[in-house]
């Protein structure tokens, strides 16, 4: 079993750093806008924001190749944007419009893109984990060399089906990376109140699955750890567990008052560990970008998100006939 290691910072070009900054900021601005639209009643139901966790998906997307797959839970907006899905289509799904990825029939928690190899968007805690291993089984069967990123949280890490899946993934040497996004709270229950052993990356030990833990607020460390995991899987060595220690700034969902932690705890994390500010710091101090470059990125993102929000408001509600379509494939 691999112990927790310090991951060396990789050499990253200015261009890639700027892209990473762009993608993380895009997710944050998108989520802030989604929160605003929720407040206005344009988004309904459950809406789980990704703010604070941006480095996880952006770092791991930087480690994967075209054709690799990903599947996650209901906190899925960040994953979709990071893998290249159109913010307009994602936002319009949040507002339940025909321009959404699922024509308005899935909503925030249930969204998919075959084109971008994004397999959901699953609302049942832990259910996406065997599904991710199944995607990897298909890849192995079809011998296409692909890897599947299967994301789940520290809450789901206590689900029984995870361990059934670990066993089979190891037994069958499936090319799947189990990414545990440990944001420290399973809804409102702190990890220490729900979890007997906090080192989630060791949870595969009983099955012989190697694991690693990484600082999920540092996008370059995430990328580096992800690259190592991908190499392991692509080399045919079977599954890999990556625990990414992260933090969500907002409540579990929009209707969570978050009284299980202090304002100071959240504020301290924002001020000292913010993943976007960290990249901004690297960009500026390393002279990878100027203030003007960043302002220009900020403006582009603002325009992109405003356009997504406009599209999501303007797109029509799905036609009444949509009630009866897509129940069965022909």
């Amino acid at each position: 079993m691999a112990a927790r290691k310090t991951v060396k910072k990789p050499n990253v070009s200015s261009e890639e750093l700027q892209q990473i900054y762009h993608d993380m900021l895009m997710i944050r601005r998108f989520e802030e806008k989604a929160g605003q639209l929720y407040g206005m009643g344009l988004i309904g139901g459950f809406c789980h924001l990704y703010i604070g966790q941006e480095a996880v998906v952006v770092g791991l997307e930087a480690a994967c190749q075209d054709g690799d797959k990903r599947v996650t839970s209901y906190r899925d907006h960040g994953h979709m944007l990071a893998c290249g899905m159109n913010p307009k289509g994602v936002m319009a799904e949040l507002t339940g419009r025909e321009g959404g990825y699922s024509k308005g029939k899935g909503g925030s928690m249930h969204m998919f893109s075959k084109e971008k190899h994004f397999y959901g968007g699953h609302g049942i805690v832990g259910a996406q984990v065997p599904i991710g291993a199944g995607l990897a089984l298909a890849d192995k069967y079809l011998e296409n060399g692909r890897v599947t990123f299967t994301y789940f949280g520290d809450g789901a890490a206590n689900q029984g089906q995870i361990y059934e899946t670990f066993n089979m993934a190891a037994l069958w040497q499936l090319p799947v990376i189990f990414v545990i996004e440990n944001n420290q709270y399973a809804m409102g229950t702190a990890q220490k109140r729900s979890t007997s052993t906090p080192e989630l990356y060791t949870r595969g030990a009983a099955f012989g699955i190697p694991g690693d833990a990484v600082d999920g607020m540092d996008v370059l460390k995430v990328k580096s750890a992800g690259t190592k995991a991908v190499m392991h899987c692509r080399a045919g060595k079977g599954p890999y567990i990556l625990e990414v220690k992260t933090y969500r700034y907002r409540g579990h969902s929009m209707s969570d008052p978050a009284k299980y932690r202090t304002r100071e705890e959240v504020q301290k994390m924002r001020e000292e560990r913010d993943p976007i500010e960290q990249v901004k710091g690297i960009l500026l101090t390393g002279k990878h970008a100027s203030d003007d470059d960043l302002k220009s990125i900020d403006k582009d993102i603002k325009d992109l998100i405003n356009a997504a929000a406009e599209f999501a408001k303007e797109s029509s509600e799905p036609g009444v006939s949509e009630l009866w379509t897509d129940i069965y494939a022909e």
Binding site: V129, G134, L135, Q161, E164, M168
Partner: peptide, 18 residues
């Protein structure tokens, strides 16, 4: 293995995967 929940989920994923 005798783990219906897990292998059924894996089979569903395999169906999504082609």
């Amino acid at each position: 293995p005798i783990t219906e929940h897990g292998f059924t989920g894996i089979a569903v994923g395999a169906a999504f995967g082609g």
